[in-house]
Amino acid sequence: MTTSACTDGSAPDLLGTLAADHATGALSTESGIFYLAAGHVVHVESPYSPGLGDLLTRSGAVDPAGWWEAVERAGAGHRVARHLVDSGSLTTGALELCHLGALFDAAYCALAHGGATLRFRPGVAHWLGAVRPVPVATVLRESCRRRALLHRIWPDPAVDTAPLTRAPGADPAELPPRRGRTLALVDGARTAAQIASALAHRTFHTLVELRRLAADGLVAPAPHPPTTPVRSVPGAGGAAWDEPDTALLRRLLDALEGL
C-alpha cells in the first residue's frame, strides 16, 4: 500500500496482509493504533490501556523529568527508547520487558474493542522508536489467549472499558491484597485503564482482577458511562512496579530471539 486506505475488513486479516507485504506504517482501529516496521509490530497504543510512559513514571522505574527529557530530545528522531537506554534511565532488558507488556496490553484492547473501520497510513512511525519488533502472528496469538482467559473469568467485556461502580458493602480489606487494591479504586468514575495507571500495573492483570470482582458481584459498569475513555488518573501516587507476567514476557523474548 502506498497511500492511506480505509477498509471494512478485519483488523487481524489486515495485519496479516501488512505483515506479508513487509509494510511500514500505522494501522488505526476504532480503539487503538498499530505501528509496523517491515511487517513487524513495533508499538501499539490504545486509550483503553495506560501508555508506556505512564507505567514507567508512575511506577518509579523512570523519573518523570527523565521521561519528558527523552521525549523532547529524541522524539523528533523517533529515538526516545534509545535515549532512555543511552542516558542510563533504563537497561535494555528492562525496557524490552516493560515495552513488550505495554504492547501486548494495548494490542489486546485495540483488537477486542475495535470497530469495522480501519485506516492504514504508510510510512508513519511512532516517536518512541523500535524497541523489539514483534511478529504480527505473535501479537494476534497473545491477544486471542488473553481474550479467552478473560472470557472464562467473566464474559462481559464492558468491564474492560466502562467506568465501574462498586457493590454496596464491598470491602477491599476482605479480599486478597492485589484484588483489594483494585477494588479500592473503583469509584463509579474510573475505568480499568485509569485503575491500572493509578496502580502502575499492566492493563491485562488489572482486567483479570476486575473480571474476578465482576464474577463475584462486587463491581459492575456504571449506569451512564461517558463515550470517550480517559487515559490517566489525576493525583495518583507512586506505586510498586508490578511484574506478575515477567516469566511469560521473558519466554516470549526468548522465542523472539530464536526467530
Results as ranks from 00 to 15, higher is better:
Ala247Cys: 08
Cys109Met: 13
Ala189Trp: 07
Phe120Thr: 02
Gly25Met: 08
Leu90Gly: 01
Gly180Glu: 06
His83Arg: 15
Ala61Pro: 01
His78Leu: 01
Thr91Cys: 09
Phe120Arg: 04
Pro229Trp: 02
Gly93Met: 05
Gln194Trp: 07
Gly123Asp: 08
Gly123Phe: 08
Ser4Glu: 14
Ser46Pro: 03
Arg190Thr: 09
Ala5Val: 15
Pro50His: 09
Gly77His: 13
Arg231Thr: 10
Leu164Thr: 09
Arg152Phe: 05
Val134Glu: 06
Gly188Pro: 07
Arg147Lys: 11
Leu218Arg: 13
Glu69Val: 10
Gly217Tyr: 13
Ala130His: 06
Ala196Lys: 03
Phe204Trp: 12
Pro155Trp: 05
His99Asp: 13
Leu128Cys: 05
Gly9Met: 07
His224Thr: 14
Trp67Tyr: 12
His22Trp: 07
Gly169Asn: 07
Ala158Ile: 03
Leu256Phe: 06
Leu253Asn: 09
Pro157Asn: 06
Pro168Arg: 12
Ala74Trp: 01
Pro244Arg: 14
Ala106Met: 08
Pro157Gln: 03
Pro221Ser: 11
Cys6Ile: 10
Pro225Gly: 09
Ala65Pro: 00
Tyr48Gln: 11
Ala222Phe: 04
Leu256Lys: 03
Gly77Pro: 02
Ala20Val: 09
Pro163Ala: 11
Ala106Phe: 04
Ala162Thr: 09
Gly51Ile: 01
Thr182Gly: 07
Pro229Ala: 08
Gly180Gln: 11
Gly123Tyr: 08
Ala26Asn: 02
Pro157Gly: 06
Asp8Ile: 08
Leu90Glu: 02
Pro225Tyr: 06
Tyr35Ala: 03
Pro225Val: 08
Ala196Glu: 01
Arg202Asn: 10
Pro223Asn: 09
Ala215His: 12
Arg250Ser: 12
Ala189Thr: 15
Ser4His: 04
Ser89Leu: 15
Gly115Asp: 15
Gly217Asp: 13
Gly53His: 04
Ala167Cys: 06
Leu14Met: 13
Arg181Asn: 15
Ala61His: 09
Tyr35Trp: 14
Ala247Ile: 12
Leu52Ile: 14
Pro225Asn: 10
Thr227Asp: 13
Ala19Leu: 01
Val159Tyr: 00
Val139Pro: 00
Val85Gly: 05
Pro155Gln: 07
Leu111Cys: 02
Val124Leu: 15
Trp67Val: 04
Gly217Met: 11
Val85Ser: 07
Glu45Val: 12
Leu140Gly: 01
Ala247Glu: 15
Arg119Leu: 13
Asp86Pro: 00
Val71Arg: 13
Ala247Tyr: 09
Ala170Asp: 10
Ala193Trp: 00
Cys144Trp: 06
Leu248Lys: 12
Arg82Val: 12
Gly217Phe: 12
Ala167Asp: 05
Ser143Ile: 00
Arg82Trp: 04
Phe120Ser: 05
Glu72Phe: 08
Thr92Asp: 15
Gly101Phe: 00
Arg179Gln: 15
Leu150Pro: 02
Leu185Trp: 07
Ala112Asp: 01
Leu15His: 03
